[in-house]
Design a protein around this nucleic acid. Sequence first.
DNA 1: TGCACTGTACTAGTATCCTATAACACTATA
DNA 2: TATAGTGTTATAGGATACTAGTACAGTGCA
Lengths: 124, 124
Amino acid sequence: MEFKDPKGIFQQIADNICDKIISGEFPAGSKIPSVREQAATVGVNQNTIMRTYMELQRENIISNQRGIGFFVTDNAQQQIINMRKKEFFDMQLPEFIKQVKLLNLTKEELKPLFDQLNLNHENK
Amino acid sequence: MEFKDPKGIFQQIADNICDKIISGEFPAGSKIPSVREQAATVGVNQNTIMRTYMELQRENIISNQRGIGFFVTDNAQQQIINMRKKEFFDMQLPEFIKQVKLLNLTKEELKPLFDQLNLNHENK
DNA sequence: TGCACTGTACTAGTATCCTATAACACTATA
DNA sequence: TATAGTGTTATAGGATACTAGTACAGTGCA
């Protein structure tokens, strides 16, 4: 049996930052909170934030300038969306469908889902 | 910031067993694999399986008879479905919707989802 | 009774993640 | 130049999950 390696804290923090990049809270080129500041905000050790930032840097989502700070790269948004989409279609969607089938959910129960998916943007 | 506590191996094994109970592979009253057997099958330590079984017992999904084995309880299926539904509507569904919105997915991209949800059972 | 299966319990050890703390190096600015 | 902010690195320690190995106890059956 294969096990999913659980998401560590540093990954959850990375996800949180990526959310803010996608949503526009951290635009391309902007400076994200410093290691110390982020550590204090999140309530976590500096090393943990450092690891988070290193990982995001490895994924070309942020870049750093020593002594200045970390900055959102130009293609960060697209980069994140690509990664997220891959994970969504490879993992989350199949898992979601599996759950719906196993639980034998009715259309009635899934109404909130359909409502949310249809109303919000004008999809082509 | 609050963190999700990651799912340990023993929980993933529990989920796996619950899947088999819901799907009918382990019917009510049937004996599930012994601690040693399951450990060998899954490739994991006996203690880890023991912890899994203890947890499932605590949730009234299996019961044990010392020296004989662990058995699926009569209301195990319903019990699991209730727990899963709660988690689904509280956690998974909101997370799923959040992802779809963040990624700004089109109806086209979500087609496999709708296909899967509509075709399979005659929902009232 | 003896054997083979079962659950149960315990101790030690390992690996990993995260914390606590400190020190050093770089950059901008007054 | 001095200072305050920044990234960077390192060491030691705690907590937890899982492993390895062993031993004991209950049950069913030949």
